[in-house]
Simulated scan of single mutants.
Amino acid sequence: MDIRRLGPEDAEAFSAVRLEALQKDPDAFGATYEDEKKRTLPEWKERLSLATPGESGYFGAFSDGEIVGTIGFFRHKGTKARHKAAIVAMYVRESHRGSGLAAGLMNAALDYLRGLGDIDQVQLAVVTTNPAAIRFYEKMGFSVYGMEKRALRAGEKYFDEALMYLLFE
């Protein structure tokens, strides 16, 4: 299994996995399939641009040259919040769940963020209807610090999110 930072050359494969994630697990993400499928290839390439290292990006896990999992991150803006980053859009294809791939992706992202040297807190939000994800994040060292009621809405259905954080010591 190869895990690496994604670049613009990965845009087509990344978009396919992202759209798959939004179709298979629509309640787990803030974005919708309908919105994301409207993006053009240049927009996907821009999203994966490495022009601003340390500000945002995605890692991909590859099996036989195919992306089978992704994780994103972004650094908070503003002088007083730049010590924090957020993990977003984590997804592992069903065929690779339970293989340790999710931990590999999370460790790659955390190692990268830790390596920047000035980030000391990583946050994420996870829908409370996904207890397996919450348990996974807890195993990775994250702790719940709050709950956002009605964080997401799909039609008439609301989803609460557990807010989690990890401090780098």
Score class of each variant (00 low, 15 high):
Met147Ser: 08
Ala102Ile: 01
Gly98Asp: 13
Ala109Phe: 07
Ala11Cys: 03
Glu156Asn: 12
Thr128His: 02
Val88Asp: 09
Ala81Arg: 15
Ala31Pro: 10
Ala151Cys: 11
Asn130His: 11
Ala21Ser: 13
Lys84Val: 14
Phe168Asp: 08
Arg93Tyr: 06
Pro42Ile: 08
Gly72Ile: 03
Trp44Lys: 03
Lys149Gln: 13
Val127Trp: 04
Phe159Tyr: 15
Ala11Phe: 01
Glu94Gly: 03
Met106Tyr: 08
Glu12Arg: 14
His76Gly: 00
Val92Glu: 00
Lys139Cys: 09
Ser99Gln: 07
Val126His: 00
Met147Thr: 15
Leu22Arg: 08
Ala11Ser: 02
Arg4Glu: 08
Glu169Val: 05
Arg47Leu: 15
Ala151His: 12
Glu169Lys: 11
Asp160Ile: 01
Ile3Met: 05
Thr32His: 05
Arg82Pro: 08
Thr79Trp: 14
Tyr158Leu: 00
Ala86Thr: 14
Gly72Gln: 03
Gly54Tyr: 07
Tyr33Phe: 15
Asp64Ile: 00
Tyr91Trp: 08
Leu113Ser: 09
Leu152Thr: 08
Met147Asn: 12
Asp160Phe: 10
Leu48His: 02
Tyr33Met: 01
Ala16Ile: 03
Ala154Thr: 11
Val127Pro: 11
Ala11Asp: 07
Ala85Pro: 01
Leu152Glu: 04
Lys149Glu: 14
Glu138Met: 02
Gly60Cys: 03
Ala132Arg: 15
Thr70Phe: 07
Leu110His: 02
Ser143Ile: 09
Lys84Thr: 13
Asp25Gly: 01
Arg114Phe: 15
Asn107Gly: 10
Ala151Gly: 02
Arg153Pro: 11
Ala109Val: 09
Arg47Asp: 09
Arg114Gln: 14
Ser49Leu: 06
Glu156Asp: 15
Gly115Trp: 05
